[in-house]
Each structure stands twice: as C-alpha cells, then as structure tokens.
Design a protein around this nucleic acid. Structure first.
Length: 155
DNA sequence: CAACAGATTCTCT
DNA sequence: GAGAATCTGTTGT
C-alpha cells in the first residue's frame, strides 16, 4: 500500500485520469475505490478553467494533488483532483466509486462540500488493477466538446 | 442589473 | 421523458 505523492498528479489530466481508475481514495475515514473519471483541461470549452481563474475555480490553478469541490445546479457537489503543473488549470472529475455512481452522489458519500475545496487529495495504490481494459467514452452531461473521449471507467 | 446555461439527480408520468 | 431544486459565471441590456 503506497500513498500517491503530489507529483503523481503533475501529468496531463488526460494521462492521469485513466491511471487514477482503480486507486483507493481515502476521504473522511472512508476508503473508496475509484471506478469512473473524466478529464478536464484548460483548453477544453467544457472545463471550468476554460475562461480563466475565478474565485470558484482558483484551486484548479493551484498545485496538483488537491481537491477541487464545486456546487453544481445549486444542489449537488462534484469532487475533482487537480492535475498538471501549478497554473495549468486542469482537473480530473471523480464520476464514480465502487458501489456508487454519479459525481453528485460520490461527493455526498465522501461527505464533501465547498468547505473541502483545496484540501489534499489522499489516494493510495494497493496494487489492484481492473481486470479488463478500461472503457473509454465521451463525457456525460457535457454539451461542449462532447465528442472528446475523456471519460474512463472500469468495464 | 437581468437573463440564462450548466461537469446533476430525484420524482412523477 | 419531462420538470424541479436553486448556485455560479458569462453575456447582454
């Protein structure tokens, strides 16, 4: 069992995202197996960072390996991990964990809200790997750049 | 300052 | 399959 250092998240979101699937996420005393993720980069019209830094997405432009939690539709929270170099404005959205599917539900299960924004992302590698190749597909609920295959999940 | 779309999910039909 | 709940950033008057 090895903890993933901040540098582990320093790569491009599209490279880090598929690697993150299967890792263990330690949050609020729980261990969650990540099963589904999506990548968002700054040049992506669907990304919050696309139009530059704001008070809301400031964490995305900070150092990698931190949590970016935002409120969506005034109701649900979504949890992301910041990737890339500081200032890149990249993140990987955690869309699903073992036994729980949907970013809003994942954030609720993890007990996250805006107060958790910017906290360290604590991930562990216990050696487990998906038995089959990951399924790659376009992202869910995205209207811009909807054709980009930037979603990865355990198949 | 008003209008609107959005990385969602639950409920009712 | 449609609608509600209701926050945030962007765009237009």
């Amino acid at each position: 069992m090895q903890r993933l250092p901040a540098e582990w998240f320093a790569g491009d979101a599209t490279a880090v995202a598929p690697e993150l699937v299967g890792k263990l996420w330690r949050i609020n005393g729980r261990m969650l197996r990540i099963t589904e993720v999506e990548a968002y980069t700054q040049d992506d019209p669907a990304s919050h960072s696309y139009r530059g830094r704001t008070a809301r997405n400031a964490v995305m432009f900070g150092p990698p390996g931190r949590l970016y939690v935002y409120l969506i539709y005034g109701i649900h929270h979504c949890a992301n991990v910041v990737t890339g170099a500081e200032g890149d404005g990249q993140a990987v959205l955690i869309r699903g964990v073992e036994g729980c599917s949907g970013p809003g539900r994942v954030a609720k299960l993890a007990g996250l809200d805006r107060s958790a924004d910017g906290r360290r992302f604590d991930a562990l590698d216990d050696g487990w790997r998906p038995a089959e190749p990951l399924v790659v597909s376009p992202r869910i609920g995205v209207s811009k750049a909807a054709d980009l295959p930037r979603r990865w999940l355990v198949g």
